[in-house]
Design a binder for these strands. Structure first.
Lengths: 193, 193
DNA sequence: GAGCGGATCGAGGGGATGCTTC
DNA sequence: ACGAAGCATCCCCTCGATCCGC
């Protein structure tokens, strides 16, 4: 194992390309760069050292076997694999919200809280014309005529709100699914809307 | 700055992609991943924008007569002879498109990107009445009653779209075949529609 | 842009099927 | 007359946002 240093945004970008839970940085980069493990010896120009910024030695404090990129993100709370995953959802509170729109927002907020890096990646979804999610209210406003964007509480995100309940379920289901939740968990969430 | 751990061979591979002395790991990865410093959180890899990366990978000229036709064109990225040819296709992204029409368009866009000179030659195909390809929407419109032309993304071309899936496969197969793809590669593309 | 929620209905796109043509 | 190839009608489904009810 080698350690390299990269800039923050690039780091987030790479993390955002995660396709499976627990994927290591190597896995992701191999996929993106289309380098498979077998071609490693492929004669390349000699290892120009990744300059001074590359740290050549790995401090053994890093647990290598599960080096999912997420573990370096300080905002990670849990992953969908966590058997207690749904316990992070306060269904009681959510259920008390007065409308499905409110419940929709709370559920999204919970997903964000549980793992905001995965949420960021999962909320890339749009309809035929409208943007569904954005960090910017105005861009949602711009993409549709009366989409009624609302802020997702305790979150930098906004969602479209002018949809019927079925569509709210679809949106939630999409996000949850992209985040890797189990089918049964997704069902539970959608029912809670 | 963030730190990530990657496997040794991948590290060497990345180091081997150094273009300038003193380039940082971030610089190299940005170039390889085509992520510029201003990426937004939602930036997704562009399936068809493979030019800059692929240029470096053009294999030694094949001694076929076709390749000599193209070898002087600066826009040649690779040729169907390239054993890695299909790796230029982002099947994952293509597969995620919501309809066969969308996938059809993406696949054509990929063929164009991979070698636009060959594409230009290969897309000369028409049905009994309708034009199939054109750089001009109106000429497609003019040649049929409801052909539903759509722009091929990131491309100067338009294609007819009002066909059943079988015909979309025929069209794709014709273009791929004219471009000189192997039978097995063509099959792979047609299945992806 | 300020009342909010969201069901309902209309617009539009996808593409299989059936008709036409050769 | 029969089949094959190709065209485009037309149904279905998705998605938007109007508009009504509270």
């Amino acid at each position: 194992m080698k350690t390299i240093e990269i800039e923050e945004d690039l780091y987030l970008y790479i993390a955002g390309q995660t396709k499976h839970i627990g994927e290591s940085a190597s896995d992701i980069l191999r996929r993106l760069l289309e380098v498979d493990a077998s071609i490693q010896e492929s004669a390349e120009p000699e290892p120009v050292d990744l300059n001074s910024q590359a740290v050549d030695d790995v401090p053994p404090e890093q647990p290598t076997q599960e080096s999912s990129v997420y573990e370096n993100l300080e905002d990670v709370v849990t992953t969908p694999q966590d058997p207690d995953f749904l316990s992070y959802f306060n269904f009681e509170l959510i259920g008390n919200a007065g409308s499905s729109t409110k419940r929709f927002l709370s559920l999204l907020a919970s997903l964000y809280t549980v793992n905001n890096a995965m949420f960021a990646k999962a909320c890339v979804i749009k309809g035929s014309k409208r943007e569904y999610f954005s960090q910017d209210k105005d861009s949602l406003l711009a993409s549709g005529k009366t989409s009624k964007p609302q802020a997702i509480p305790d979150t930098p995100y906004w969602v479209i709100t002018n949809t019927n309940t079925a569509r709210k379920r679809h949106i939630l289901q999409h996000v949850a699914s992209e985040m890797g939740l189990q089918e049964s968990q997704i069902e539970r969430l959608c029912e809670a809307i």
